[in-house]
Simulated scan of single mutants.
Amino acid sequence: MWFLFALGSAVFAALTSILAKVGIEGVDSNLATAIRTAVVLALAWGMVFLTGAQKGIQGIGPKSWLFLILSGLATGASWLCYYHALQIGAASKVVPVDKLSVVITLVLAFVFLHEPFTSKSLFGCVLIGAGTLLMVL
């Protein structure tokens, strides 16, 4: 089941890039990011209340709060950079570079989460890196 949600994420991320590139024309990238964030915020809280998940907010520990806040800051920084890059660059160039996050995530997961880094992982990272270079150059 995780695969279907991950595939949905990829499809929606692709739509995000195309829709954003069209929508950002003539709009400051920071303003566009704020508008996008407000929509995401409303959607996320809507899902929380729709599913009754708000009841679990008291059970969130300090460590989880810290890392969720840090993750939110990283997301915000990512979106600000991404929208500015989309505004000044071609989506067909910006998106492949953005997807280098896959390689960076695998390395960080190995270093900090002690997840396995196999020869398959290494080969995949090399292919993603090479593919990115081919698409950007």
Rank of each mutant, 00 (worst) to 15 (best):
residue 46 G to C: 09
residue 58 Q to E: 04
residue 80 L to D: 00
residue 29 S to V: 04
residue 115 E to W: 13
residue 20 A to S: 12
residue 53 A to L: 11
residue 26 G to F: 07
residue 15 L to N: 01
residue 41 L to I: 14
residue 90 A to E: 12
residue 69 I to L: 08
residue 69 I to K: 02
residue 67 F to K: 04
residue 50 L to H: 03
residue 62 P to E: 00
residue 50 L to W: 12
residue 115 E to D: 10
residue 80 L to P: 01
residue 89 G to Q: 12
residue 51 T to D: 02
residue 87 Q to M: 11
residue 89 G to L: 10
residue 43 L to H: 00
residue 129 G to R: 11
residue 114 H to W: 14
residue 17 S to Y: 05
residue 105 T to M: 15
residue 14 A to S: 11
residue 97 V to L: 14
residue 114 H to I: 08
residue 44 A to Y: 12
residue 23 G to M: 06
residue 113 L to E: 05
residue 102 V to Y: 15
residue 114 H to P: 03
residue 94 V to D: 05
residue 86 L to Y: 05
residue 68 L to R: 03
residue 109 A to S: 14
residue 111 V to G: 08
residue 30 N to Y: 14
residue 113 L to F: 15
residue 22 V to E: 01
residue 88 I to D: 04
residue 125 C to Y: 09
residue 112 F to Q: 05
residue 16 T to C: 05
residue 76 G to N: 04
residue 105 T to A: 15
residue 37 T to I: 11
residue 34 A to I: 11
residue 77 A to S: 12
residue 49 F to S: 04
residue 91 A to G: 08
residue 81 C to G: 10
residue 129 G to N: 08
residue 44 A to Q: 04
residue 119 S to Q: 11
residue 115 E to R: 14
residue 71 S to T: 02
residue 82 Y to V: 07
residue 55 K to D: 01
residue 71 S to E: 01
residue 79 W to M: 07
residue 95 V to Q: 11
residue 59 G to Q: 06
residue 100 L to F: 14
residue 97 V to C: 08
residue 116 P to A: 15
residue 66 L to E: 00
residue 121 S to G: 13
residue 123 F to S: 13
residue 14 A to E: 00
residue 46 G to L: 08
residue 38 A to K: 08
residue 70 L to V: 05
residue 112 F to K: 08
residue 15 L to G: 11
residue 92 S to V: 14
residue 22 V to C: 00
residue 38 A to I: 12
residue 124 G to M: 12
residue 73 L to V: 13
residue 111 V to T: 11
